[in-house]
Nucleic acid binder design. Structure first.
Length: 448
RNA sequence: GGUAGGGUGGCCGAGCGGCUGAAGGCGGCGGUCUUGAAAACCGCUAUCCCGCUUAGCGGGAUCGUGAGUUCGAAUCUCACCCCUACCGCCA
C-alpha cells in the first residue's frame, strides 16, 4: 500500500472540480452553486483569477526555460568530469539575472495562485442533472413509499418512553456522566444492537462487502480530503489531541462522524485495478457528532445524540458504474428495512440540501408511530469523482487512469433504527416485539 | 517519555552537485514464436500544469513538504510532516 508521506498533499494540492471543466462549463457550475444555495459569483471570480494565473504561468515557464538554457550552456563548458577551468563559467552573471527575474515573477505568481486556489476550493461538486432543484428541504421529493404507517389499537408511545419504561435507554444517568445528548443503552437494547449488526453483516457480506472496523480517530488533513469542510464541517466534529508515539508529543485528530470518514480515505493516493471495482466496504464504528447548532432539535431520546454506532457502506466504482452503484446502495438500504418490516419512504434530496461534495443523495425515512411521522434513518450519497480527486483515488484498466466514483450509504444507524423498531413493534403493555429477521440473532420474540 | 533508522516512478530498489524524469528488477501494454497457453526474446510504459496548427507537438513543474546554498540540487544546509524498529508505560 502506498503511504501518505505528505499530509499537505491531501486536500489542498488536489483539485476539486476539474479546472478545465469549470472553464468549459462555467454556466453549469454556476447553476449548480446557485441550486446549492451558494453564491455563484465565486465561479466568476475564480475564472478571472484563473485567467491571470494562466498568463503568469506562461510567463514564468518561459523565464524558466530561458534560465535553464543558460545553465546548460555553462555546464557544457565547465568543470565536467573534474576537469576545471575550461570555462571560467562564462555567463554566470546572466544566469543570475535570469534567476532574479524568475524569483520576482514567482512571488507574483504565488500570490495569484493562492487566491485562485482559495476560490477554487469554494466550488462544490455540482448536483447531478437528475436531482430536483429546490430552495430548501421542502424541495425534497418522496419518490416511493414502502408499507403503510403502522396502526395500533392503543395510543403508541415514543421510543424514549418505551425505552425508559423497560430499562433499555437511560438518558438521565447519561446526562449526569456525559451531558445532554448521550445515552446508556442497556439490557435488551444492547442485544438488539448486536442483532442489527449481525443481520447487516450477514446481508451485506454476500453482496461483496468487505467488513471493516476502522479507526475512529483520523488526522485532520484526511477530513479535509473528504470535502465537507467548506460547509462548516469542522464544527460538527470533535477534535482530540493526543501524544504522538514518535515522542513528538503532539498530534491532532478528529473523531469520525461516521465510518465513511475513515473508510473513504483508505485508498487515498492509490490506483485501483478496474477489474476489482466496485470495491465495497461495510464498516462498523462508533460515530461522534457535536451537533452544534442543533439546540432544541430532537432533544428527546436517541434520535440525535453525540455518540452512536453505525454500520456504513462505502463503494468505489468506475465512473460508468457510479450511478448504478448509487442506486444499488439505495436498494440495499431498502432491503434491510423491508426485512425488518419497518415502513419507510424514499426521499430524493433536492439541490439545496446536498452537502458540498455530494452530487446526489437519497434518504430513507422510517415511519415513527410515536411521533406520527417519517424520520430519516439512512442516507446514501454519491460524491462522483469529487472526493476521489481530493484524495487522489484512481483506477486503471492498464491503459487509462481515471478518478473513481465514491459512494456511501448507511446500512443501520443503530440508535435511529432502534427507535424505529421500538415504536413500530411496541405492544399494548409496552414491550417490543423482535422483528422476525432479528430473532435468530437475539433468540427472543419479545424484549422489554 | 527515551533511542535509532528511513521517505525516490504502478511496486521494489539504485543514484548522493551537471543531458538524471531519474539505472536495474517486477508488474502492465504491444509484438515475435506457438494449434493455444506458458516460457524466452524485442519494443513501449510516470504524473500534473500551460500553450498550440489538439488522434499529435512544444514548454514548465514534480525524487515527503517548505525555505536556503549554487550558474546548476533527488543529491549539500535548515525547518516541518510522515513512516518503521527498539526500550519504557499500557487494554
Amino acid at each position: 500500500m502506498k503511504r501518505l508521506n505528505d499530509s499537505q498533499k491531501l486536500g489542498y494540492d488536489k483539485s476539486m472540480v476539474d479546472a478545465k471543466f469549470i472553464r468549459e462549463h462555467a454556466r453549469a457550475v454556476k447553476d449548480g452553486m446557485k441550486h446549492k444555495n451558494l453564491d455563484p459569483k465565486i465561479v466568476e471570480d475564480f475564472l478571472t483569477m484563473d485567467e491571470v494565473w494562466r498568463v503568469l504561468t506562461k510567463e514564468l515557464d518561459d523565464l524558466r526555460a530561458e534560465h535553464k538554457e543558460l545553465t546548460h550552456s555553462i555546464r557544457s563548458g565547465s568543470t565536467l568530469n573534474g576537469v576545471e577551468g575550461l570555462s571560467d563559467a562564462r555567463d554566470t552573471k546572466g544566469a543570475k539575472a535570469a534567476k532574479a527575474k524568475i524569483q520576482s515573477k514567482e512571488e507574483e505568481y504565488a500570490a495569484v495562485e493562492r487566491k485562485r486556489k482559495t476560490l477554487w476550493l469554494e466550488i462544490p461538486n455540482p448536483p447531478s442533472p437528475d436531482v430536483p432543484v429546490g430552495k430548501d428541504e421542502k424541495g425534497n421529493q418522496v419518490i416511493r413509499t414502502w408499507g403503510e404507517p403502522t396502526t395500533f389499537d392503543f395510543e403508541p408511545k415514543d421510543h424514549l418512553a418505551l425505552g425508559e419504561a423497560r430499562g433499555l435507554i437511560d438518558t438521565e444517568r447519561a446526562a449526569k456522566i456525559s451531558g445532554t445528548r448521550f445515552a446508556y443503552l442497556t439490557g435488551d437494547a444492547v442485544l438488539l444492537e448486536f442483532a442489527l449488526i449481525g443481520f447487516a453483516f450477514d446481508t451485506l457480506i454476500p453482496e461483496g462487502f468487505t467488513p471493516v472496523i476502522p479507526p475512529v480517530l483520523v488526522r485532520e488533513n484526511i477530513t479535509e480530503g473528504l470535502g465537507y469542510w467548506q460547509a462548516g464541517g469542522e464544527k460538527d466534529h470533535y477534535r482530540v489531541h493526543g501524544a504522538g508515539d514518535d515522542g513528538s508529543g503532539k498530534q491532532e485528530f478528529y473523531l469520525v462522524g461516521t465510518a465513511e470518514h475513515s473508510l473513504v480515505p483508505m485508498h487515498a493516493d492509490e490506483i485501483l485495478k478496474k477489474r476489482d471495482l466496485p470495491k465495497r466496504y461495510m464498516g462498523f464504528s462508533t460515530c461522534f457528532r457535536r451537533e452544534a447548532g442543533s439546540y432544541g432539535k430532537d432533544t428527546r431520546g436517541i434520535i440525535r445524540v453525540h455518540q452512536f454506532d453505525k454500520v456504513e457502506m462505502v463503494s468505489f466504482a468506475s465512473r460508468e458504474d457510479g450511478d448504478s452503484e448509487h442506486e444499488y446502495l439505495l436498494s440495499l438500504e431498502e432491503k434491510l428495512f423491508q426485512a425488518l418490516g419497518i415502513p419507510y419512504r424514499v426521499v430524493k434530496i433536492c439541490t439545496a440540501d446536498l452537502g458540498f461534495p455530494i452530487a446526489r443523495k437519497y434518504d430513507l425515512e422510517a415511519w415513527l408511530p410515536g411521533e406520527g411521522r417519517y424520520r430519516e434513518v439512512t442516507s446514501t450519497s454519491t460524491t462522483t469523482d469529487f472526493q476521489a480527486r481530493r484524495l487522489n483515488v484512481k483506477y486503471s484498466d492498464g491503459a487509462e487512469k481515471r478518478y473513481a466514483h465514491i459512494i456511501n450509504g448507511t446500512a443501520f444507524a443503530i440508535g435511529r433504527t432502534l427507535a424505529a423498531i421500538f415504536e413500530n413493534f411496541q405492544t399494548k403493555d409496552g414491550k417490543i416485539r423482535v422483528p422476525a429477521a432479528l430473532q435468530k440473532y437475539i433468540r427472543k420474540e419479545l424484549v422489554g
